[in-house]
Design a protein around this nucleic acid. Structure first.
Lengths: 238, 238
DNA sequence: ATGCCAATATAGGTATACATATCGACCCTC
DNA sequence: GAGGGTCGATATGTATACCTATATTGGCAT
């Protein structure tokens, strides 16, 4: 079922109770749609495997089919939807095997981020990541899963940036985005929060100690563990 | 300038001396266009930075603007063209800094391919890669640069496959494709052919010896060296 | 002469109309 | 009664017409 994707955001409101869509000049409808839909997928409002009906979405946002189609093409290239010619678009459903493969790559890329970060970080960055980590710990104690998830994301994002390799950061972000729909579920697993905090500490120490190899391996292990947890989680369902 | 992109390929020929376009059923015009254009870019027929005019291309292939636009969107997501809203599409021009970053990632990904390959390859694969390598050596001696380039590609492709991680293989292929337009030029550099042969031998030995770490490092070095050469080459021009 | 503003042209963005392939339902046959 | 084939509905793929934003060029003012 398609929940109320994009119910916030303040653009023009179109006539018949349609969803709103940012209409900032310089931006295009297709791009706005892509953002909205990707958010909806990442947030789990659009189930993997569910069909994306061009007309329905066009009506929902009060636009024609053309920008909707273009948004689909954009997302297809991000591996977020599958386009099977003449058979419509579906939210990409990732099989366990594919997830294993993706985590293997992601572990390597995030590991590279950490390695580069270890070589390049400044003192100021150390203070910043420290603050993020403190907030993560706090959220862990509160038990607010959604907040924890977001701060966790911030932590990794900070390391992407610290790698000072924008291409690498982009690639890693994209990949992270692809598995986001699945990843979110894992946060709710028994020891995941405590483990995450501990693993983040190890990563942080390695980076701040300017130890590239240790930064690499701790980060890689962290991502792989998450992947393992995710697979356990999926296995429990099917 | 736009050379004779897609002058070969045997689909229906459209009325007014247009380019041909494969019309295999089950495939879409947008997809066919994407392939043609990506080939043209990789082959260097479309210079980085050159403008892609929707109407011109539509006319050239005898289709409407719609599939052309969709092909652009598809390619944009592959990072092969840049779409600046309302300002048309251009073949992506990669700056030296970006190339450095991309090679850093590519080295890691190809390294991972090699590492996995070392763990997984069979005896049969060893024979096959050996044959490819022999052909590479032969082409090197002949001095046929284009053939050498293609066989070189085959060698790497064989390792992608051997990693048995289709996602990784896809990612690596895509990345390779993105720098293809630049990469081709490097093959013509003084010692590149001899170096390539030597480096490939080291990689091959490591993989066949089932030594993951050595496979990783030799491959990583190989890619990094190529990147360095490419940067030298570019530096000589600007 | 140079710089800024405005008007116009061009081309990308969007909407809609049309063609065609796929899927499902219903009927006929075995 | 079951299975297959055909016909029709629906949605995707494509074409085209229209709208609007951006760029360019020319004129005017400083």
């Amino acid at each position: 079922m398609m929940a109320d994707i994009g119910a916030h955001g303040g653009g023009r409101r179109v006539k018949n109770g349609h969803e709103t869509l940012a209409a900032s000049p310089g931006t295009t409808l297709a791009e706005s749609l892509r953002q909205k839909l990707e958010e909806a997928i990442a947030a789990g409002h659009l189930e993997p495997g569910s069909r994306l009906d061009e007309q329905e979405i066009a009506q929902r946002f009060g636009v024609s089919r053309t920008p909707v189609r273009e948004a689909f093409r954009l997302m297809a290239a991000n591996n977020l939807v599958e386009l099977r010619g003449r058979q419509g678009a579906t939210v990409r459903s990732i099989k366990a095997q594919a997830l294993i493969e993706m985590f293997q790559v992601m572990a390597e890329l995030e590991g590279l981020c950490a390695r580069l970060a270890a070589r390049r970080v400044s003192q100021a960055w150390g203070a910043e990541i420290g603050k993020i980590h403190q907030r993560l710990v706090a959220a862990g104690e509160t038990g607010d899963i959604d907040v924890f998830y977001d701060i966790n994301q911030e932590f990794h994002e900070a390391i992407y940036e610290a790698s000072r390799n924008t291409f690498l950061a982009d690639q890693t972000r994209k990949l992270r985005n692809q598995v986001a729909a699945y990843r979110r579920r894992v946060t709710r697993m028994p020891n995941r929060i405590a483990d995450t905090v501990r693993e983040h500490e190890a990563i942080m120490q390695a980076i701040l100690a300017h130890d590239p190899e240790r930064a690499h391996s701790t980060m890689r292990d962290h991502v792989n563990l998450l992947g393992d947890n995710l697979l356990d989680f999926l296995a429990a369902f099917e």
